[in-house]
Lab assay of single mutants.
Amino acid sequence: SPEEIKAKALDLLNKKLHRANKFGQDQADIDSLQRQINRVEKFGVDLNSKLAEELGLV
């Protein structure tokens, strides 16, 4: 269901964000992850996106 997909995506992105902060990645990478999280919260996951591929939806 779209809600489950959204939850999985947010979980994955939050893990990536945590790792980025923990290991001191570029601020641009961290900002990009934050924008992705905001986009998923607002609009859900686009099944044509790279994120959908990472989640194994495509």
Score class of each variant (00 low, 15 high):
K22R: 10
N14K: 15
K22D: 06
L12E: 04
E3C: 10
A7F: 11
D46Y: 05
L47D: 04
L17G: 00
K22S: 10
R35E: 15
I5T: 06
K42H: 07
H18S: 12
A52N: 02
K6C: 04
F43K: 03
A28E: 12
A9W: 05
D29E: 15
D46M: 05
N48Q: 09
E54H: 05
L47A: 07
L55Q: 00
V40N: 00
A7Q: 13
S32L: 14
A7L: 12
A28M: 10
R19H: 14
P2D: 13
L17F: 04
I5W: 14
K22F: 10
I37T: 01
K50G: 06
E53L: 14
D31H: 05
E54L: 09
K15G: 07
S1K: 09
E41G: 05
L17S: 00
A52T: 02
A28W: 08
K50L: 10
R35P: 02
E54R: 04
A9V: 10
Q27N: 07
A9T: 03
G56S: 05
H18P: 01
K16D: 02
I5R: 04
L33M: 04
I37F: 04
A9S: 02
N21R: 14
Q34P: 01
H18Q: 13
I30H: 03
S1M: 10
L13P: 00
K16Q: 06
D31L: 10
K50H: 09
R39Y: 15
K15N: 05
Q27P: 10
A28G: 12
D11Q: 12
A52P: 02
F43N: 07
P2N: 13
L12I: 11
K8L: 13
E4Q: 12
L33I: 15
Q25S: 14
K42S: 09
E54T: 06
E54P: 00
V45P: 02
Q27M: 09
K15T: 07
S1F: 11
N38G: 07
D29A: 14
L55E: 01
V58F: 11
E54C: 07
L10H: 01
K42P: 00
I5Y: 11
Q34K: 13
G56M: 08
Q34M: 15
Q34W: 08
R39V: 09
S1I: 08
I30Y: 04
N38H: 11
N21E: 13
K16E: 04
Q34G: 04
L13D: 00
E54W: 14
L12D: 02
R19N: 14
L10N: 01
I30C: 04
V58K: 12
R39N: 13
N48M: 08
S49T: 06
K15C: 14
L13C: 01
E54M: 09
R19C: 14
S49M: 04
L17C: 03
D29I: 15
E53P: 01
N14R: 15
S32P: 01
R35G: 06
N48G: 12
E3Y: 06
A9E: 00
K50A: 13
E54S: 06
D29R: 14
N21F: 15
A52D: 02
Q27F: 08
K8V: 07
E53Q: 13
I5V: 09
L57N: 03
E4L: 09
Q27A: 10
G44R: 00
D26S: 15
N21C: 14
K42M: 12
E4P: 04
K50Y: 09
K15M: 11
K42C: 08
D11Y: 10
K8S: 05
G56N: 06
V40W: 03
Q36T: 08
Q27D: 05
K8W: 12
D26M: 08
L55M: 07
D46S: 09
N14E: 08
L10D: 00
L10E: 01
V58P: 07
D11H: 12
N21M: 15
A9P: 00
Q25H: 12
V58R: 10
I30F: 03
L13H: 00
R39L: 15
L47W: 07
I30S: 03
A20L: 11
A7P: 02
N48S: 11
G24M: 10
L51Y: 06
N21H: 14
E54Y: 09
L51A: 02
